[in-house]
Design a protein around this nucleic acid. Sequence first.
DNA 1: CGGGAACTTGAGTATGGTCAATACAAGTGG
DNA 2: CCACTTGTATTGACCATACTCAAGTTCCCG
Lengths: 237, 237
Amino acid sequence: MKASMTMIEPNGHFCSDCAVRGIAVCASLDPAELKEFEHLGRRVHFGAGETVFSEEDITTSFYNLLEGVMRLYKLLPDGRRQIVGFALPGDFLGMNTSGRHNFSADAIGAVTVCQFAKAPFGRFMEGRPHLLKRINELAIRELSQARDHMVLLGRRSADEKVATFLLGWRERLVSLKGSSNTVPLPMSRQDIADYLGLTIETVSRTFTKLERHGAIEIIHGGISLRDPARVEALAAA
Amino acid sequence: MKASMTMIEPNGHFCSDCAVRGIAVCASLDPAELKEFEHLGRRVHFGAGETVFSEEDITTSFYNLLEGVMRLYKLLPDGRRQIVGFALPGDFLGMNTSGRHNFSADAIGAVTVCQFAKAPFGRFMEGRPHLLKRINELAIRELSQARDHMVLLGRRSADEKVATFLLGWRERLVSLKGSSNTVPLPMSRQDIADYLGLTIETVSRTFTKLERHGAIEIIHGGISLRDPARVEALAAA
DNA sequence: CGGGAACTTGAGTATGGTCAATACAAGTGG
DNA sequence: CCACTTGTATTGACCATACTCAAGTTCCCG
């Protein structure tokens, strides 16, 4: 949304040192392949609120998120927004069958991605079925998450939505940074609302309600789970 | 739901004659591969309401839908149901990363599937990256559909949901059987409600409203689009 | 400090849900 | 062939959850 702070680092980085080496698509590559792969990607930084790619844009690149959080969303013509997911380090973005992106992606806070031009990436993948297999696995896992989210959007109450979101978000952070009852929420209330199919007011009220009941504590930039069991009960599986 | 009418046909069928040959996963196979592939799949029939597989079941097979319509759904512990999709001929079901199905699948009406045991299918796929690529394409396309559906569930009104569903369902049938303003709806109102995140009453009321406004005509086992433009306007993109 | 964005809180309302009655269609058996 | 059952769909009356609109608060950043 802001003026572009995009910066391309011209000199290479080493994939072997990469923070997401073990969890991203590149986890499927052996050291020799990694050496070659290194030349395909460019590290690119984005500032808070910047758009990395937009829905309907022709796909020229794929992206491997290295650092930061992104919101992935779709807009209706009248401006209503549905956030279809939040991306965290290790997530691979940009695959599609139509040649165009089917959602938009913004940086929430500062973000670093590893950007791959589509054609060379495709060529590299030819003859490396283990990479394709890895990408397929990630796609299938995402599909499973998407279905879970459909259940949330279609069949859960506001309280359940918020509680489920907090637990699910914590779970994702746990697998990246280890366990903690302090859950940072880098996204805005509006982002959370658009993710859960609610309004910002309902999200705010529900947070306050959870706090009044002693289930959470609202802290700066996030929440603290004071009574995880109670939140789990509210999430109702 | 009924007593099982499952029937396994012992003698082989010919993939080359298969109705979904050109649109299913097998579209990626050449005639020689197809000959081999033929021995992997078994045609299995299911009667109306029968469950083909259930969420949390250990995955032992994959399924290629040949004939009929299936509902794919998830249940909450208290029984609330979200239908995450309807499967039509050509759809490939059962892929997952956890070793367990992540949704349940019922036959709506009579159904024929081509069933593949997981292990032999996996072995066949090894060394045939074009098949893996095909499966990946299908997964990515489904992911895109899933995201569209999230927008519908999270951000659309009841009227928009119903109108969007009718148009989307027609579109899918068009690509299978050709264009028509008569749209068969083999699924029940309850199924439609659970797909759209509504109640059966709201779906029924909305159908009636669309009919009163001259947009559709409710016919036995489906609807007829009397004023497609008006339905499109209601779908609001 | 002052201005602005993000968030919270309140009051009133609308959309879609709940509960209940009725209609309709298809199948079963006398 | 008709009474009866069963399951599905429609319609109505009422209600609750979450939305809208509006004001007020907090926090950050210049």
